Amino acid sequence: MSVIEVKHVTKDYGHGRGIFDVSFEINEGEAFGFLGPNGAGKSTTIRHLMGFSKADEGELSINGKDSWKSAANIKQDVGYLPGELAFPKGMTGDQFIEFMANARKITDMTRTEQLKELFKVDTSKEIKEMSLGTKRKLAVVTAFMHNPKILILDEPTSGLDPVMQERFIQFILKEKSEGKTILLSSHIFTEVDATCDRIAIIKNGVVVSTVESNELKQSTNKSFKIEFASFEDYQKFIENTEFTIPTKRPEQNQVKLSLTDQKMQEFFTELSKVKVNFISEIKFTLEDYFMDFYDRKKTVAAGEENLRYGLH
């Protein structure tokens, strides 16, 4: 059963900005990753899904309710964590929590206190005096305090330190194990890879691929790093191989290349003609798959530093 549906949604802001014919659906109990750099269209899609904006074309719904027409009702069903945080002025963290509890008619604050303890957040201060990380943790507490069955998380760990990022991932895995339906928008490969069953990649407002997480982990594509015993062996291999070699390091007598299972025998036949120091397999990752759609050099040159590559 589809809990979240986005069907052929377009919002054109002009000059190539917006989202264009975006479609995906998320089944009950599924964790769905929405992956792309800042500005790709993730937050725009989520704002339409939450009913903050009206699409030019297409349909969006949560639990069968139209996102635009039933926005107020939908917010009661959903734990929403926005990418850009905004809080009422003049409130402490405790006052904001009380405000949200009253809005949701929460009388038992046990879960709220558990969340505050889990994420080590001091809610006694005025929100305007809090660091970005503390504000993010406050938003996490209020997003989950009513124990919603549907979670819509836009860049949820932005501003959190590595310890809290990992704690958040473990928390999401626990929520997932309890059957929650999750949409997680992020530019961080590790948190998407660790939590999501399916992943959509968005580029320039267009969904360019949707893939099962298990398919990536069981990919028949393999990458290898080879170090040759000498420069002569390195050169001999380079000059005679039938394989494309995207990475060459002559100063280290090393190459990196990718191939499928069908080419393995041919690969090792070629290697038998030279001497090598070592061969190591490099695990195919979500990052590798992503970069099939985003040219790495152009992406870095464009200043999209927030896309975390984890390059070696």
Results as ranks from 00 to 15, higher is better:
His48Met: 15
Lys297Tyr: 11
Pro88Ala: 09
Ile46Gly: 04
Lys225Asn: 11
Leu132Asn: 09
Ser223Gln: 15
Leu151Gly: 10
Thr195Cys: 10
Pro148Met: 06
Thr44Ser: 11
Asp154Ala: 10
Ile238Thr: 05
Gly310Ser: 11
Lys225Gly: 07
Phe34Met: 03
Pro156Arg: 06
Lys65Ile: 02
Thr123Ala: 12
Leu132Pro: 08
Phe168Gln: 04
Thr299Leu: 14
Ile106Asp: 00
Ile226Gln: 04
Lys283Asn: 12
Asn147Trp: 08
Glu5Gln: 12
Glu281Gly: 12
Glu178Pro: 02
Tyr309Thr: 13
His15Arg: 13
Glu113Asp: 11
Glu30Met: 06
Gly16Gln: 12
Lys128Val: 08
Asp261Met: 11
Phe99Cys: 03
Thr285Cys: 04
Gln95Pro: 09
Ile202Pro: 02
Asp122Ser: 10
Lys180Asn: 14
Phe32Val: 15
Gly179His: 11
Lys297His: 13
Gly39Ser: 12
Leu132Arg: 14
Leu216Gln: 03
Ile199Lys: 01
Asn204Cys: 08
Pro246Gln: 06
Met145Asp: 09
Leu60Glu: 03
Ser219Phe: 04
Ile62Gly: 03
Glu57Pro: 07
Gly205His: 08
Lys128Ile: 11
Arg17His: 14
Glu117Gly: 05
Ile282Asn: 04
Gly79Met: 02
Gln76Thr: 12
Ile169Lys: 13
Thr142Tyr: 11
Lys149Thr: 07
Val163Ala: 12
Tyr80His: 04
Ile169Thr: 13
Ile245Tyr: 07
Ser23Cys: 10
Phe284Ile: 03
Asp21Pro: 02
Ile4Gln: 02
Glu126Val: 09
Leu81Pro: 00
Tyr13Phe: 14
Lys11Ala: 04
Met164His: 06
Ser186Arg: 06
Thr244Pro: 01
Ala55Lys: 03
Gly133Met: 06
Met264Pro: 06
Glu304Ala: 06
Lys217Gln: 13
Glu113Trp: 05
Gly18Tyr: 12
Ser158Asp: 07
Pro37Ile: 06
Arg167Ile: 08
Lys42Arg: 02
Lys297Ala: 12
Met91Cys: 08
Leu183Arg: 04
Ala301Val: 15
Gly303Ser: 10
Ser230Val: 12
Ala103Glu: 13
Lys176Cys: 04
Thr247Lys: 15
Gln170Cys: 10
Pro250Gly: 15
Glu57Gly: 04
Val121Phe: 05
Ile26Thr: 08
Tyr80Arg: 01
Lys273Gly: 03
Leu184Phe: 08
Val6Glu: 01
Phe24Lys: 08
Lys217Cys: 10
Phe87Trp: 13
Arg249Lys: 14
Ile46Arg: 01
Phe119Val: 07
Lys174Ser: 13
Phe224Asp: 10
Ile201Phe: 03
Ile279Trp: 12
Met264Cys: 11
Thr260Arg: 09
Arg296Asn: 14
Glu270Phe: 06
Phe267Ile: 01
Glu98Cys: 08
Lys256Asn: 12
Pro82Cys: 07
Glu98His: 07
Gln265His: 09
Ala302Asn: 14
Glu113Arg: 11
Glu239Trp: 05
His146Met: 06
Thr92Gly: 01
Lys297Gly: 10
Arg198Asp: 10
